[in-house]
Structures are given as C-alpha cells and as structure tokens.
C-alpha cells in the first residue's frame, strides 16, 4: 500500500511540475492562434509621420501609468512597464503600411505571461486613438 502511495505521489508531482512550465524550445512555437493574435494586436492609422506617432504612443503609455524603458525612432519601437503591484510590459512598434498609413502593433506581457485577451489591446488602441486624434482601423 505504501508503495502505491509513493507511486501516486511521484506521478502527480511530476504532472504538477510539468503542468505550467514551458520547455526551452516553446518560445519558438507558432500557435495556431498567431494570426488571430496579430490581428488583435495591430491597428492601422492614417498618418505617415512615424516620429509623431511614436511620441503619441509614449504619451499614451505614460498616461496609462507606464514608465518608458526604451524608445527607438529608427525602429519605431517603444517599450514600457507599468508597476502597480504587478508588472505589465508593453512593446509597441510602428511601421509604414502602404503609402498613407502606419501600422501599430503592440504586445503585452502581464507578469510572466503573454496577454492574449483582446480587451486590454482594444483599451490601449482606444486611448491611443484619442491621444492622436486618429481612428484606429482594424486590419486583417
């Protein structure tokens, strides 16, 4: 009987330890929902001024309580972290889309996990849209 108990505990401990963990190779895995996630994380804006859009992104992130960690005008990327008992990291990048638009893509990481819920991204784009006086357009 004792043997049985030890066996069961071992099995469950292993299951528990492997349950949430991601292996070393997991970070390269492409999810089936990758396309859906990209669409959640991206919006197009009717502007061609990358620097101005980057500055608006910085101001929006600051208004939302983030501190800016990095910003690069050449790459058009801005990263920030919000610390409010938790850590919420965001990287927002801007690149041209066609002749007249800029594509804004952001991805968020809450503590140690990627945010896949569409709502926070929608909230961010609403705030960015207000700050830039431009409409955030959904893209496929």
């Amino acid at each position: 009987m004792t043997k049985n108990i030890i066996f069961c505990i071992t099995i469950f401990s292993v299951l528990f330890l492997s349950g949430c963990g991601g292996g070393q190779k997991d970070f390269m895995k492409s999810d089936e929902s990758q396309v859906a996630l990209r669409s959640i994380q991206s919006r197009a804006f009717d502007t061609t001024d990358k620097t101005k859009l980057c500055r608006t992104i910085i101001a929006t992130l600051q208004d939302l309580g983030f501190v800016i960690d990095k910003a690069d005008d050449t790459l058009g990327s801005v990263s920030g972290t919000k610390r409010a008992g938790y850590s919420l990291r965001m990287t927002v990048s801007v690149r041209p889309r066609g002749e007249k638009q800029m594509m804004v893509r952001c991805n968020a990481q809450y503590n140690l996990e990627t945010v896949v819920d569409p709502e926070p991204y929608q909230q961010f784009f609403t705030a960015l849209s207000k700050a830039s006086f431009l409409e955030a357009q959904q893209v496929e």
Partner: peptide, 13 residues
C-alpha cells in the same frame, strides 16, 4: 499555480 489575469483597468485611463 496557473491562475492568471490582467486587471481589467490596467490599460484604461
């Protein structure tokens, strides 16, 4: 251990 969730007001003004 897998409990998660970004606070609802994290990205709102």
């Amino acid at each position: 251990s897998c409990k998660s969730g970004i606070p609802k007001d994290a990205l709102t003004l």
